[in-house]
Design a protein around this nucleic acid. Structure first.
Lengths: 257, 257
DNA sequence: TATTGTGGACTGAACGTCTAGTTTAGTAGA
DNA sequence: TCTACTAAACTAGACGTTCAGTCCACAATA
């Protein structure tokens, strides 16, 4: 227990495993149970804490890509080898620091109204995501675009946990008869959070409380205009053939242009 | 005209400007008008085309970060110096290749119904974004997370053009009385596209035609359940979907990571 | 003393630059 | 018209730099 921190992404300390043991496949806290009592020098908790702290410090000031392992080591007063001893790469150090540094900054409201719950929650989430620490969310998504394994880990360790929370709010709304149950719950979550996250990434729109409110209001109210019978389509379905994607994006003959 | 291609992101050819001239601040086609007729050897259109083609080829096979300038030069049969002569960095070569290679792969439907328009458009967009070329969209967003200048350029050269198109569909819907006009148009666009783009980036959900339809239906119908019966449609009329792409054979049907 | 942690030096990949020399094209003088 | 001159683009490849990740010798500890 003392010898191993709670660092969920760190390498396993299993003696047999030499180096290239990737943390992604590593169980969370495999050791401590049937481990044959460690013999040599013990892992420095101080060094580990310093690494995570230094990582957070740097990541709050510049994008993940520009934070170097050397800089982390220097700031933490630790050798770079120590970092790579416990984490397979820089991104996972960052994710670990992020997870450790969050400590539930976003709460789950329960006001009795699903719409109000989601409004408060979205405002809270966006306030966090636009903070120095929260901005890491985008950095991780960005990193994931060139590292599928990392993206999967990020989903599992962060995204899904968040969605589980939000799903509870959705479920309550459905049970209370506030939310149409024929809309898939996963889509509901993406309807609520997707628009603002898109803005967060692309930077094309504001992210203030007002927008969070407007998004939830629109999602709940719908775009369709309901008064004096003008709810539906103006005309019946018309198939437009030219609206589809052009073929020829075959992966094989991808020599476009 | 012959001497300069339409490459919108390339460096300006102004003789006075030596190197460090960033394309971001460069006017699109400043030359050709009052330029004192070029003297020396002319820019090789062949080399430029080869660079863009090679870049696309590589980018359709691996993420932007893993495509090196050396690899582009090698595949294009061109000196690396030639690349850096015309583009300030790799990312802008990629963006240029992307813009040049798209040639309007996604059309704007006009069916007479805003909801149907958006459904078809979203399906079309997502089919493109999940194609090898379209996947670059995510790469650019990712790149932009550590390079604000690039992100701004991406917004201007790509995102805003797309949104202008989509805004037309929204406007038509409002004018026809189909869409509640009190919902801000920019938010409408993000409501439609945000959820799927979020999925595209995080890889936590499917991106098939079915989801596109469900998103638009939910956005138009709203989540809120009215007291007397339901407000939105239980099932969207998606009869058109069969006319466009066959779901079974669709490569975009698969869950993307 | 066996085992593990640590630090500095090291390797390799990649970006982007620089130099030297070659090719192409306009210009000017014979 | 022919030819030398000059400006610009191109090629090849070496180079400087930064950074990720590794190696190895040594220090700390059960």
């Amino acid at each position: 227990m003392i010898e191993n921190s709670g660092c969920p992404l760190a390498r396993s300390r299993t003696p047999a495993s030499p180096r290239r043991r990737c943390a992604i496949a590593t169980p969370l806290r495999s050791e401590a149970a049937n481990e044959p009592k460690a013999r040599g020098r013990r892992r420095s908790l101080q060094a580990e804490a310093a690494i995570l702290k230094a990582t957070l410090y740097l990541l709050e000031r510049q994008p993940l890509r520009k934070v170097t392992a050397d800089a982390i080591a220097r700031r933490a007063g630790v050798s770079k080898t120590t970092i790579y001893k416990w984490w397979p790469n820089k991104s996972l150090v960052a994710l670990d620091a992020y997870l450790a540094g969050m400590t539930e900054q976003v709460a789950m409201p329960d006001t009795g109204s699903a719409e109000l719950d989601f409004t408060q929650q979205l405002k809270s989430v966006m306030a966090f995501y636009t903070s120095p620490l929260g901005r890491l969310f985008c950095q991780f998504l960005a990193e994931g675009q060139s590292d599928p394994g990392f993206l999967a880990l990020f989903r599992e360790r962060f995204l899904y946990a968040r969605r589980d929370t939000a799903r509870v709010m959705w479920r309550r709304g459905v049970d209370r008869g506030e939310i149409r149950e024929e809309v898939d719950g996963e889509i509901v979550l993406d309807l609520i959070y997707g628009p603002m996250i898109f803005r967060l990434l692309a930077g094309h729109g504001s992210l203030s409380d007002r927008e969070s409110e407007a998004v939830v209001e629109a999602v709940f109210g719908g775009l369709r205009r309901s008064k004096n019978g003008r709810r539906g389509r103006a005309r019946p379905d018309v198939t437009v053939s030219g609206a589809t994607v052009q073929p020829g994006v075959n992966p094989q003959e991808a020599e476009v242009v």
